[in-house]
Design a protein around this nucleic acid. Structure first.
Lengths: 126, 126
DNA sequence: GTTTAATGACGTAAAAATACGACATATTTT
DNA sequence: AAAATATGTCGTATTTTTACGTCATTAAAC
């Protein structure tokens, strides 16, 4: 039970989910916002600015790095983190059309048609 | 430990995180896509189309409903689910500028300036 | 009225995420 | 060389998520 079933979905959806998931915690959004504000890619003293311990911040940074949203460049004893602009660009290119495709099928507001098998999609590959 | 610290962040960031989190699983993205495709708001037999049990799908639906991304209208023994267009609209209005603000500060690619305290933001309220 | 189908609610087990302290390592600074 | 600073790694505890089966309820079909 509780076995990973994520691989059974579209790779595209899996990839998107990883990104969205990494955006799914206020601390990580705050980190991204901070990195964007201080373009100079300030390092782990991000934890001075957040109500979290250094270790926890480091953990969030790792997650963001794994999602590809940030990069870390070693500079002596320090590590300079910064936004990965390329990935953000990709995210924008995926998210906008995706959101668009969700809502713009006319304002069908829970019409009570019940089953419409005509609209059924191919099994397990939706 | 592992105590909830999410409340310590901007409400705006908290709200956004809830939405992004709900998008952070391929099953939920698949459900949204399916609902968008079958505008007719088909009910829980979504589980026929996904590699997950009905109970698990119901759980994902609850999560999406809590995030406000979908609505469920009772129709007799059935429940018609559908995309909440208003919320998607709000999401678009938040996400686009947010993504924009992250990457468009000029292509500063991890410049090794080190500490730049001039860019420090107000503590704990970033 | 009884069966059938659909749903929500509950319980539960495994896995993942969250949060932190302690330690080791590497790099400046002195 | 020694002290101070920054970082990553490891272990660990708690919470949350994921996934499912079972049960009760409700509405439709017969």
């Amino acid at each position: 039970m509780a076995q990973a079933k994520k691989e059974l979905f579209d790779v595209e959806l899996q990839d998107a989910a990883v990104i969205f998931k990494s955006l799914g915690h206020p601390a990580r959004l705050a980190i991204l916002r901070y990195l964007a504000a201080t373009q100079t890619c300030i390092t782990g003293d991000i934890s001075d600015v957040l109500p979290l311990s250094r270790t926890t911040v480091a953990q969030h940074l790792t997650q963001l790095k794994e999602a590809g949203l940030i990069k870390g460049e070693v500079a002596g004893a320090r590590v300079n983190y910064c936004i990965n602009n390329d990935k953000i660009e990709l995210l924008k290119q995926f998210a906008s059309p995706f959101f668009e495709s969700l809502c713009c099928n006319g304002g069908s507001d829970c019409q009570t048609d019940g089953h419409s098998d005509s609209c059924r999609i191919n099994k397990f590959n939706l």
